[in-house]
Design a protein around this nucleic acid. Structure first.
Length: 424
RNA sequence: GGAGAGGUGGCUGAGUGGUCGAAAGCGCUCCCCUGCUAAGGGAGUAAGGGUUAAAAGCCCUUCGAGGGUUCGAAUCCCUCCCUCUCCGCCA
């Protein structure tokens, strides 16, 4: 959510910035108009309330009698007028809030302009991690031949976009999760969190998934719980409605969770393999920082996530999103992509974003220096990394001509010291 | 799932219709005093919003949430949520 004061005071600036992310000026103007109506009503209602308070107090000091009854009747009439003004205010306020929640974040000045993903900028690109003297296979072939990914049974028990990991496949994923958690918590200084994977709607409003992107989410309608689409949601909301001590910032968390997404928007895309499923595992990095530190902290977070790819010996590149390809909530965003030599594509395994105070305002996450007034934090996050796609990159990069997989050295301690996954 | 108790400021906790944004204590901040330390004295100590160029000031909201009664609600009534205790069940 944006600061309403900014919209009031610099409407031209806001319209210009939001036009870059595809939000029409009329939408901004509608919010500004609603705010003006809202404030008029607030002033009217509050002055009536003040008057009623004064009058009621004076009634309390009166002796019972005719004078008191007259005064009571007068306040009752005022109360009725007030109630109707309050009702109108509530309507306008609700409309105003709803519109505020639909406005996207303002892009950071460092974001390159551009209409869509064609204008994204590849900031750096790693060298190929190996040469192939044979034709590398896609992971769905490797996984099936090795008996470590079972697509047919995944479909049988749950349907399309589900799969089963078996034996060394399941173990490899577990090794990756443990490895990532270990590196981030022991070496990069993130405190590990094991959060709930089901949350209340408010949490999703806080992170910006609701109200706009509800069709991405699974939910238990009876209990009104949502299944998290990413650990970003529960972890960011850890400090919702709290005021953190400035001395504790930046707060850095790493969390592993399963993630659940309906993927309605991407129907028909990435249907082969394990690239895009309704359920997947992810290790997520989340930071809470002071405003002046968030830019630098984002680069550190990106480096921490990249480090995982480097240690696994995978070819990676960093892509900066242009204004037209930013997510709703991000002010600036870098993707980490891994090269998958078998399916011959770059796989997005992390989006590292600075949301500045956009989520913090929605979720009311603040910090304070001593006795100063509380200020909104900046929130940042990025995957570190998303499991199934890292699995794809590992399987396809480390495949051998005989169809076996060499286990990357970094993972061997988590795979019982083994060096190879072979058929059997 | 059954029975009971309860949700008040950073914490403990008083408060059953008005002068209560809320006693008292603890904690915290500042000042004074005591040659250090301990102790003591005094003052202060919520958040959000409106008005304002901004501040001060003034005003409004908030005692789990929502609704109701009333001139007036932390206080009375209803609904919901949550916490705790005991029992049942269960990884």
């Amino acid at each position: 959510m944006l600061d309403i004061r900014l919209l009031r005071e610099q409407p031209g600036f806001v319209k210009e910035k939001l036009a870059l992310v595809g939000c029409p000026a009329a939408e901004v103007q509608a919010v500004i108009d609603a705010d003006a109506r809202r404030r008029e009503l607030i002033a009217a209602v509050e002055s009536m309330r003040a008057e009623r308070k004064r009058s009621s107090k004076s009634i309390g000091a009166m002796k019972p009698g005719e004078e008191m009854e007259v005064a009571k009747a007068a306040v009752r009439a005022l109360g009725e007028r007030m109630a109707s003004a309050e009702k109108e205010l509530a309507t306008v306020e609700a409309e105003f809030q709803a519109m505020m929640l639909e406005l996207p974040n303002i892009p950071h000045d460092d974001v390159p302009p551009g209409p869509d993903d064609s204008a994204n900028v590849v900031l750096r690109s790693g060298e190929p991690s190996r040469e192939f003297d044979f034709d590398p296979k896609p992971h769905w072939e490797l996984g099936e031949e090795l008996g470590i990914i079972d697509f047919a049974r995944g479909v049988k028990i749950s349907g399309t976009r589900f799969y089963v990991l078996k034996g060394d496949g399941a173990r490899l994923q577990r090794a990756l999760i443990t490895f990532m958690l270990e590196v981030h918590s022991s070496e990069h200084g993130y405190t590990e969190i094991y959060p709930p994977a089901m949350v209340r709607a408010e949490c999703l409003v806080g992170t910006g998934n609701l109200p706009k992107f509800g069709d991405m989410l699974y939910r238990d309608a009876e209990e009104d719980y949502y299944f998290v689409p990413t650990a970003e949601v529960p972890v960011t909301n850890l400090y919702r409605d709290e005021i953190l001590d400035a001395a504790t910032l930046p707060v850095k968390h790493v969390a592993y969770t399963p993630c659940f997404r309906r993927e309605k928007m991407s129907a028909g895309r990435d249907v082969r393999g394990i690239k895009r499923g309704h359920q997947f595992d992810k290790v997520e990095l989340v930071k809470f920082t002071k405003p002046e530190e968030s830019d630098a902290e984002l680069l550190k977070l990106l480096a921490d996530a990249e480090d995982i790819a480097a240690r696994l010996g995978l070819q990676s590149r960093i892509v900066q999103m242009c204004t037209g390809d930013l997510s709703f909530t991000a002010a600036i965003k870098y993707d980490i992509e891994l090269w998958a030599p078998g399916c011959r594509e770059w796989l997005e395994v992390s989006s590292c974003s600075n949301f500045r105070d956009f989520q913090a305002r929605r979720a009311n996450i603040r910090f304070r220096h001593g006795k100063d007034r509380p200020q909104l934090c900046h929130t940042l996050n990025g995957s570190g990394l998303a499991l199934p796609r890292v699995m794809i990159a590992v399987l396809e990069t480390y495949q051998c001509a005989d169809g076996s997989i060499e286990i990357p050295e970094a993972l061997r301690p988590y795979m019982g010291g083994r060096e190879r996954i072979a058929k059997g």
